[in-house]
Structures are given as C-alpha cells and as structure tokens.
Write a protein that binds this DNA or RNA. Structure first.
Lengths: 139, 139
DNA sequence: TCACTTTTGACAATGATTATCACTGAGAAT
DNA sequence: ATTCTCAGTGATAATCATTGTCAAAAGTGA
C-alpha cells in the first residue's frame, strides 16, 4: 500500500518563522490581531490572514494554546516552557484579577491524564465571578 | 452630584414575558438566534435585537447562564435546576473528546469564591492532551 | 387619562474571522 | 543550478454574530 501520508508537510516560510519568533517573545495570551500588530512593529510585513492561518495550524498541532474570551475573541500563546503555572480569578464587573494556584487541580489533571492514557497534557482554567466590592455595589 | 440612580427599573413587557417563557421550555444551551427562531415559531414576533438585549440583561442579573463556544458564539439557557456541569478532555491530534466530571474542582472553585468574597462564580476548564492512540502513532 | 421613560424593532454598522484567488517561493526532482 | 509544483501568502471581499441607532410604541406612577 502507498504510504499513510500522515503529515500534510508544513513548510518553513519566512513569515512562519517570524510568527514563531514573536510567539517566543512572550508567554502572554494575545489575539491574532495583536500578534499581527506586534509583527508589524517588528518590521515584518506578514499579512493578517497568514497570522490567523498560522496560529490556527499551530493550535491544531498543539504548539500554541488557544482560548476564547467571553467576548468571543480567540487568544493564543506559545505552548510549553510555562512552568510558572497559575490561573486567574477575575471579576466580571471591575476586571481585577488575582492569581490563584490549585495544586490539587494539577494533580487531578495529571491523574486523569494517566488513567486515560493521555500524554502531553495541558489545561486552561478560567474562573470568573463578581468580587465583594462589586457585589456590595449592587452588581 | 446628582442622584445615585441605582436600579434601572426593569419592565415586564410582553416580549420579555415571551422570552422568559421559551427559556423555561428547555434547559438546553441555545444561541440568541436560536431562541429567536423558537419564539417566531411560537407565534411571537419579537425582534432579534430585543432577544439579544434581554438575554444579555438576564445573564447579568444571573437569571440565565451564558457560555461562549469555541467558535465564539454565545449560548444561553435558563439558570438553576441544571447542575449537569461537566468538562471535556480533548485530544489535540485526533480531536476526540471525552466528557469528564470534576466534583472536586467544582467544590474547590466554590470554596475559593467564598474565601475571596466572590459571587456568581463561573468557570471554564479546557483540558487537552494527546490520546493513547495518537501517542502510539508517534505524535 | 397624562406625562415620563423604558423598551422595542427594523436596519445600519461593527469587528473578528474566513474565503477568494492570483501570485510567490520552498523543496523535490532533474 | 534549473525546473516544476503546489502549499503558502496577501490584499481584499465576504460572512456572521452581535451591537448601535433612533423614531415609534408601550409600561408605570401620578
């Protein structure tokens, strides 16, 4: 039989290289458009559509993380190297955010992973609510 | 300065009543447009913008739940009654997803909420990895 | 009923993301 | 190194959910 023909053969173009480059510059979540702006400022003239396509492709292979905000925007950030793993508790009204850590959750995630035979686990936890101040103000 | 003007005073109009009515008909998550269609089929001629505005208002007061799908669409459902809350474990390579439940996490989230004085908590948990099959295939 | 405001609805406007499509260049074959 | 090919690119049009606009219609208290 012919070969399985697994990988769609990704090519290394200068624009893809540029994208991977800026991605490595920060580990913050940013929108495709934000990354595009950043690329422009860095002198690269990558097209917006290309940024969208590349981020999507990278997200599918797991090389970048993607999350969708409550306003429907998709944010991306480079994957891995994120040892400083923590989550945020954000107030939906005033927007303040606290860092929180959940060792129990990390352990739980790891357990589920091994139970089901999953590897290279990653997770995103978004926790929102209305803080005490805003609740007091009637929100 | 002038008055504090706290509550904007919500009015009970027939369209709002119709919306609350269909909302009570199902406890599934549906998009604003889907609810609108449903209303139309029920004979009500509520405007789309009105449906959006009402659902938004209801979501703010906590009377309905709102979630954002990975494609950026916002889904709503009547609040309460339903605590069939679960998350997904998704393979980044083949895309298969399993439902998983994390009572511990729910408890933990609730605890954090009360500790910090937060109210009306909500959370999103995205767990991804590479499943056993895909790992075996070298991914 | 009357005045006063909120709510509504039709439709234009946004804004993020995707589709188009001619063109370019990466990588394989020669 | 030179061709050959098709995946990748970019400018822009198209899509689609959602929001803004504003005159007309309908609650609510007096």
């Amino acid at each position: 039989m012919t070969d399985a023909k697994a990988s769609p053969a990704p090519r290394m173009t200068k624009q893809r290289a540029a994208i991977l480059d800026v991605l490595d510059g920060t580990d913050e979540f940013r929108s495709a458009q934000a990354w595009h702006d950043l690329l422009r400022h860095d002198g690269s003239s990558v097209g917006l559509a290309t940024v969208y396509r590349s981020l999507q492709a990278l997200a599918e292979t797991g090389e970048v993380d993607a999350i969708v905000t409550s306003s429907g925007e998709t944010l991306y950030r480079r994957c891995g190297a994120v040892n400083e793993h923590h989550h945020h508790l954000r107030c939906r009204v005033c927007g303040t955010a606290d860092d929180i850590e959940v060792p129990e959750f990390e352990e739980w995630a790891a357990r589920i992973a091994s139970e089901r035979g999953f590897a290279r686990m990653d997770h995103t936890v978004e926790i929102t609510g209305v803080c005490a101040d805003c609740t007091a103000k009637g929100h």
